[in-house]
Design a binder for these strands. Structure first.
Lengths: 190, 190
DNA sequence: CGCCGAGTTGAACTGAATCAAGAAACGTGG
DNA sequence: CCACGTTTCTTGATTCAGTTCAACTCGGCG
């Protein structure tokens, strides 16, 4: 089937009973987005938790004429506006595909049903929460204790090939500096 | 009973079936810490999700001679080293009571049992995750888009009375600056 | 009473922002 | 497939917020 990557990813954490997995798969929705396409718009409510089969997603706020990219999700990981998804309230930021992107998504309603019906549902929810939380935690600490240059180096080592596809200006705002500053950092370290 | 605050807090989100609540309460552990006491040490595994009945907790890393306070949890909210709790791996930071503190804690094992036995268990876990994640998300964005002065103002409006009990040096590292810089900001805005 | 940690203030320095202008890369239509 | 316009990246000059180092004040506590 086409869910190989997702299954492999989940099985890193624990075995999946065939029955639960079948049920889970039956609720999965494949969603494709082309480069630059909006995946979620400010004002809407996030209705999915998604696994990124391929592609890269950027989350950003529009702030006085500027965009701040506060999160970048890469393939082989979960992606969702989790705060909105959980609280069922509108997001105040946008999400867009940085490259052509394919997602496996499960809707809020279906996930609720998964929770009540199967053990694997709870597992998925928990794993998504865990991954997203841990990622945020690390990043927040990095913002507090690392310099911009260190943060850039972290990106280089964490996602060596992937960041090639990401325009410098997005990386810059992701690590909390201006494109000019990142350009200078690049020159300095090469 | 003594769980009034916790019950009220949880009921903000949804009603609690009496039976589930009884079971939940039976697994609750009250833990008290005096000012400055360590609640969790680097190298240990977090074994609890806790509700802060009263008090303030500070999470901090020791980084080349310095302490960076990266999280502050106030009363009437959840507190846990959630990344460690979830992954069962040691923390690389410390947690300490900023004031005398009383917690209602549930252990990892008991929470797992709650998950399998009651609906309210899943709810607790989910709510804790939600609250913690949303808090991190907000804060991360604030670190990216606000100035140090704005971040301090946010603290003032969010926790007007509580931050009085927190020494300036901890607040400073929480908003990502030195105590000297915060001291100057204070003078400027008063 | 004297000490010690916490907060304040000053002066010099530094990393990054801002403003500005030119170069390179990109994609869209002819 | 090239030409043009737009966006992205680079580089320079100036400014500014915050750091660092250092000295001094204040308040509580042994």
């Amino acid at each position: 089937m086409e869910h190989t990557k997702l299954k492999q990813y989940l099985e890193l954490f624990s075995p999946l009973p065939a029955e639960d997995w079948e049920f889970f798969v039956s609720r999965l929705l494949q969603r494709s987005f082309s480069k630059k396409e909006l995946i979620l718009q400010a004002g809407k409510v996030e209705n999915y938790v998604s696994f990124i089969e391929s592609g890269i997603i950027r989350y950003f706020v529009r702030e006085r004429e500027k965009e701040i990219t506060f999160e970048i999700a890469f393939e082989n990981s979960f992606a969702t506006a989790y705060d909105s998804f959980l609280t069922r309230t509108p997001v105040w930021y946008d999400a867009a595909a940085l490259t052509d992107t394919v997602l496996w998504s499960i809707s809020y309603e279906d996930l609720q049903e998964m929770y009540s019906r199967t053990a694997v549902g709870n597992r998925i929810g928990r794993l998504a929460a865990e991954e997203l939380y841990i990622k945020k935690n690390k990043r927040q600490l990095s913002l507090l204790k690392d310099t911009a240059e260190q943060r850039y180096m972290n990106l280089l080592t964490d996602y060596p090939h992937l960041i090639q596809f990401i325009p410098l200006k997005y990386l810059a705002s992701y690590i909390g500096i201006t494109p000019q500053a990142l350009s200078r950092i690049r020159r300095r370290i090469s």
